[in-house]
């Protein structure tokens, strides 16, 4: 298998309270150095709660946000400058809110034509043929092309968003919460469509979501983010079934499952991002935390086989 995507110590911090001259008042580490590898044709699920840095990570991967450190390699090619146009032919992005990601004053045809024109240089008949092909791929009727975004339901708009992301024939799709704005019955349609497209076009997916069950259903491997750092990664069937990091366990217990009593109701919240603790960010909420957890940040290490966790006291299966 070949590597589709690899990041090395990819990190991003934001300056808070920037002044006209001089250093900023504070610095917020949205994403701490993260190294991930995604194989060709694989789906990597990325889960985490709000504020864990998953959206910033996604936006760095497609070049919308410049990383403050680290590198991104796609199919062995180093992409070091944040330029969405350079990234666009290799990696594309599907937005969470399908309706607000479509310009309300453009027709669907104009929206789909943009990446084809600017990234692939298609014109005239070639362009029309490709648009028709894309529209068929996401199973929408071609008479929708001359309509405006507000005429579509969420599920249809998300299909259009997927068609746009596929337009430039990228190798990788970053799906940032692609179904969380949709109703459950429509959600399943879109997830199945994504699975079909992946099989047909040989795509690689990075599937970001806060919904553990959805991530588990679509992913080969899962990475868990907490407070801007990777705390656990491993095969999808193992991560939530036998979590090694206490945070992953808390997540798995908190998810409402039919027939399981209320659980995981553990108090505590994220640490203050402007004043992060020196050790493990989860130590404040962790039942197993000891002295070393509050002092030293644990590094990500292999626990068993392909399952990695950043914890001083990993859980037994």
């Amino acid at each position: 298998m070949t590597l589709a995507l690899q990041t090395r110590d990819l990190a991003r911090s934001f300056d808070i309270g920037r002044r006209l001259i001089g250093p900023p008042r504070a610095r917020l580490h949205a994403v701490r150095p993260i190294s991930i590898q995604v194989q060709q044709g694989e789906t990597l699920g990325i889960v985490g709660e709000s504020g864990c840095g998953k959206s910033t990570l996604a936006r760095m991967l497609v070049g919308l946000v410049a990383p403050s450190a680290g590198s991104i390699e796609i199919e062995g090619r180093l992409l070091d400058r944040a330029d969405p146009a350079a990234f666009g032919r290799l990696i594309q992005y599907v937005f969470q809110d399908p309706v607000s990601s479509l310009n309300p004053r453009k027709t669907i045809r104009q929206i789909l034509a943009a990446p084809l024109r600017h990234l692939r240089g298609l014109r005239g008949r070639e362009l029309d043929a490709r648009i028709a092909e894309l529209f068929a791929a996401v199973s929408l009727r071609s008479d929708f092309l001359s309509r405006y975004p507000h005429e579509f339901s969420g599920g249809q708009a998300q299909r259009i968003g997927i068609a746009r992301a596929l337009a430039a024939s990228p190798r990788i799709l970053v799906l940032d919460e692609p179904v969380s704005a949709l109703d459950v019955s429509v959600q399943a349609q879109v997830l199945n469509l994504l699975a079909d497209l992946k099989a047909k076009l040989g795509l690689t997916y990075l599937f970001i979501s806060h919904d553990l069950a959805v991530v588990e259903a679509v992913s080969d491997r899962i990475a868990v983010l907490y407070f801007g750092a990777l705390v656990e990664s491993g095969p999808a069937h193992k991560v939530f079934a036998t979590p090694r990091h206490p945070y992953t366990k808390l997540l798995a217990l908190s998810a409402p499952v039919v027939g399981r009593p209320l659980g995981g109701a553990q108090s505590g919240e994220l640490p203050d991002p402007l004043n992060p603790p020196p050790g493990c960010a989860f130590a404040g909420r962790c039942p197993h935390a000891t002295e070393i957890c509050r002092r030293e940040m644990p590094a990500l290490r292999a626990i068993e086989g392909d399952q990695h966790a950043a914890c001083h006291h990993p859980l037994a299966p």
């Binding site: 349609q189 199945n192 069950a213 992913s219 069937h237 079934a241």
Partner: peptide, 21 residues
């Protein structure tokens, strides 16, 4: 509707979508 909601612990699978809107 119950069938098309993935449930944690179900593993990787194809979901039973309801066609239409």
């Amino acid at each position: 509707l119950i069938a098309c909601v993935p449930e944690l612990g179900g593993g990787r699978r194809r979901l039973a979508a309801i066609p239409g809107l």
